[in-house]
Computed example of a mutant assay.
Amino acid sequence: MELNSESTSYQAGDIVYVFYRNPHVQNVANIQEAAVVNNPENPGELALFLYETYYPLTNEVAVYASAEEAEQAYEQYID
């Protein structure tokens, strides 16, 4: 899945929605709220902050601006 940001530019402080796979049960995914933050490990880059962990904000992550967008994509890709 790709970053859903053709016309969206994220900034630190934005709240977004991502698909998050349960690390203990690989076939279970949920929509989770995440914060866009300045990456403490790579100054000048943004990261997603989710479950007390920083994840790089790359084009390999499906990111949605609203829960509704994420739910529609979830139904399309997961169901």
Rank of each mutant, 00 (worst) to 15 (best):
M1A: 10
M1P: 03
E2C: 10
E2V: 11
L3C: 06
L3T: 03
L3P: 00
N4I: 06
S5T: 01
E6A: 13
E6H: 13
E6W: 12
S7N: 08
T8G: 04
S9Q: 04
Q11Y: 10
Q11C: 14
Q11K: 15
A12G: 13
A12W: 09
G13H: 13
V16Q: 12
V18N: 03
Y20W: 12
Y20D: 08
Y20S: 10
Y20R: 09
R21H: 03
R21V: 01
R21F: 02
N22P: 03
N22A: 03
P23F: 09
H24Q: 15
H24Y: 12
V25T: 12
V25R: 15
V25Q: 15
Q26I: 13
N27C: 13
N27W: 12
A29C: 05
N30P: 07
I31D: 13
I31L: 13
Q32H: 10
E33P: 09
E33C: 15
A34L: 08
A34G: 04
V36A: 02
V37F: 11
V37E: 15
N38K: 09
N39M: 02
N39T: 01
P40W: 11
P40T: 11
E41A: 08
E41R: 04
P43R: 05
G44K: 07
E45I: 07
E45D: 14
E45C: 11
L46W: 05
A47S: 08
F49R: 14
L50W: 06
L50S: 06
L50A: 03
Y51I: 11
E52I: 08
T53G: 00
T53L: 01
T53W: 00
Y55L: 00
Y55K: 00
P56K: 03
L57S: 01
T58V: 02
N59R: 09
E60Y: 04
E60I: 03
E60S: 05
V61W: 00
V61Y: 00
A62W: 05
A62Q: 07
V63G: 04
Y64E: 01
Y64K: 00
A65F: 04
S66D: 01
A67Y: 09
A67W: 08
E68V: 04
E69R: 10
A70R: 10
A70H: 08
E71P: 07
E71T: 12
E71F: 09
E71V: 08
Q72L: 13
Q72G: 03
A73G: 08
Y74D: 02
E75Y: 01
Q76E: 07
Q76R: 06
Q76K: 05
Y77Q: 11
I78S: 01
D79R: 14
D79Q: 14
D79Y: 09
